[in-house]
């Protein structure tokens, strides 16, 4: 489903990225690299800079200093084509409650100029377990149903980089397991999945890379982390170590 010039990448490189809001440094010289087929956990206490970093990676904000490269290309060089390879899901789900599930997916499929939009929409509804609720308004859905629909909306155009902000919030056990299975499938498809979460028990053993932010600084960049995330990062994630 290419949009304008085909554009793809297999690495995401963040180099010395800082973001200042006045005198406050939300991010301070953050540097890391991610590769295709990896699930990366971006961890840290509230206010550590996780959402700011996700906004920069999603091209919704510009870094004050430093550079983000998608493959070898910056967002400015790639133009709108870069956004055709990004999928994002925020804490708010980016869905129109006054539209049906099918209408929401169709709208975004057309906005992304997805090939075979109708087929992809039906496949997405099936994956979300909402094939028989496709014509129901989203306003009548539970949090879990909305979350599943929102994830499929974010993946509708086949993005290379998927940014998920607290994707496990409000999900019951069955929905959480379904989401974990979907993330594993994305990993096998060669997608870079970068997620923020406080549910460390859920992602323990799932992550290929752990990035820990504290006060805007990257304090940990660990590949193939051993299990026991919560015990190891307890002090940092609780915001106790300063």
């Amino acid at each position: 489903m290419p949009v304008r010039a085909p554009f793809d990448f297999t690495t995401l490189t963040v180099t010395d990225v800082s973001r200042h809001f006045g005198r406050r440094k939300a991010l301070n010289r953050v540097t890391f690299t991610c590769e295709a087929g990896h699930i990366i956990g971006l961890l840290g206490p509230n206010g550590a800079g996780k959402s700011t970093l996700l906004s920069i990676l999603a091209t919704l904000a510009s870094p004050t200093l430093g550079v983000v490269r998608y493959g070898g290309t910056t967002a400015r060089e790639a133009g709108p084509a870069i956004r055709a390879r990004l999928g994002a899901l925020g804490h708010d789900l980016y869905l129109y409650p006054e539209l049906t599930a099918r209408e929401n997916l169709r709208f975004f499929a057309r906005l992304y100029e997805v090939d075979d939009a109708a087929g992809r929409v039906e496949a997405a509804l099936t994956r979300a377990g909402l094939a028989d609720r496709g014509d129901d308004l989203v306003s009548g859905f539970s949090r879990g149903m909305r979350q599943k629909l929102a994830l499929e909306r974010a993946l509708l155009h086949g993005p290379r980089l998927v940014l998920l902000d607290e994707p496990f919030t409000g999900l019951d056990d069955a929905a959480t397991q379904a989401l974990v299975a979907r993330l594993v499938a994305l990993k096998q498809e060669g997608v870079i999945v970068l997620l923020t979460t406080h549910d460390l028990d859920v992602v323990d053993g799932l992550l290929d890379q752990v990035l820990v932010l504290q006060n805007g600084r990257l304090v940990t960049d660990e590949r193939q982390p051993a299990t026991g995330l919560r015990a190891r990062f307890r002090r940092v994630l609780a915001g106790e170590a300063r």
Partner: peptide
């Protein structure tokens, strides 16, 4: 309210 403006800004549309 649902951050849908952000979703529009994320799309590759002009």
């Amino acid at each position: 309210y649902n951050e849908t403006l952000q979703a529009l800004m994320l799309a590759p549309a002009d």
